[in-house]
Design a protein around this nucleic acid. Structure first.
Lengths: 112, 112
DNA sequence: TTTAAGTGCTCTATTTATAGATCATAATTT
DNA sequence: AAATTATGATCTATAAATAGAGCACTTAAA
């Protein structure tokens, strides 16, 4: 009852994942950092780093983000302070929204 | 011999993952899209979507990116055409770099 | 206020990701 | 050209992720 199997990703997703992979490999090579060493710093195996740099979408988000971070790649705010406050603001905004997503019966505002 | 275990993420990574999670939940609620429906569209289970919106770093990169994409969240270029060309350029740049990361013997250019 | 839908949790079976080791090959340095 | 390091690939055991279902509770619509 698991059948995770072959997922169908959108083209955007596929390219975004691959771009991130290429950016990572680029940054690593530019910094002359051997895969083995980067993997150790990130707390992952060399094999996993290899998959990440290959653009495997089945790698864990945390591992990929951590590797990117160690190489100086910032997906959101470039400094931690800014990211922290952005996060706080987003949480506040979220708290103001309704807690459930319910479609108003039928008729209007539906995304066909 | 797997012992994947508890990884230690940097603060930046933790916050980046959580921010993405909040952005996703925000976008979903704003669009009045029930979790069940979004999960179906993304080809994942409702349980996984729940973990994604909770900021679990152990979710697969592809699943998270796909959900974000479906909600209109673009981590890189906003339109697919731009992303595609960015990807091509990045690949070209990568092809010009040395293929291995080797540290020049000893002495200079080391990132301590 | 009633009612139905959405959500959050938990549990289990199963698939899949990951670590770790090894080996052959390729790419740099010297 | 020789030496050495980095990489890519493969294999195995194990841990972890995921699907799917069920259930109580909450929320918002009517």
């Amino acid at each position: 009852m698991a059948k995770t199997a072959n997922r169908a990703y959108s083209r955007y997703t596929r390219e975004a994942v691959e771009l991130l992979a290429v950016m990572i490999r680029e940054a690593r090579i530019e910094r002359k950092l051997p895969a083995k060493e980067l993997a150790e710093r990130a707390g992952i195996s060399r094999g996993l780093l290899q998959r990440i740099e290959k653009g495997d979408p089945n790698c864990s988000l945390g591992a990929v983000f951590e590797v990117a971070y160690l190489l100086g790649i910032r997906l959101f705010d470039s400094d931690e302070r800014a990211l922290a406050s952005t996060l706080v603001m987003s949480k506040e905004k979220l708290s103001l929204l309704p807690k459930m997503a319910r479609k108003p019966a039928r008729g209007v505002d539906d995304d066909f």
